[in-house]
């Protein structure tokens, strides 16, 4: 059975791109969220195997969303999507419970490596 993924990013472009990379690698995208609040809600509903989470999103940022998700599920597998120059935020996200991260612009190989590490 393929792993289920929830993709969280406020930009449709980024969501589409991540979904494409993961779908081609055999993952099943079960939901998308465009804000931190949505991400938390959908995580509770969908219980996906993996979450990809943008750091900067409206409503609730990605870091707070990770914190919320890990509060209810410490084993949640959240992969942060960050941009260059966001090192401090990435470190904070990991302290909040994120399990790995990838840096934009995405290279499919690196995204999949990170996903394997998180699920492995």
């Amino acid at each position: 059975m393929s792993h289920t993924v929830l993709v969280c990013d406020d930009a449709i472009f980024m969501r589409t791109m991540i979904s494409d990379i993961l779908t081609q690698a055999g993952f099943e995208i079960v939901g998308e969220a465009e804000s931190g609040v949505q991400a938390v809600e959908k995580y509770r509903q969908l219980k996906p195997d993996l979450v990809t989470m943008d750091i900067v999103m409206p409503d609730m940022g990605g870091i707070d969303a990770v914190r919320e998700i890990c509060k209810t599920d410490p084993d949640a597998k959240v992969l942060m999507c960050s941009a260059m120059g966001q090192q401090a935020l990435v470190v904070e996200a990991i302290q909040a419970g994120a399990k790995d991260f990838v840096v934009k612009p995405f290279q499919p190989s690196r995204v999949l490596e990170a996903v394997q590490r998180v699920l492995g």
């Binding site: 960050s82 260059m84 966001q86 090192q87 401090a88 990435v90 470190v91 990991i94 991260f101 840096v103």
Partner: peptide, 10 residues
Amino acid sequence: APMRGGRAML
């Protein structure tokens, strides 16, 4: 590695 600090934290 990109973002060595993040990797180090992991």
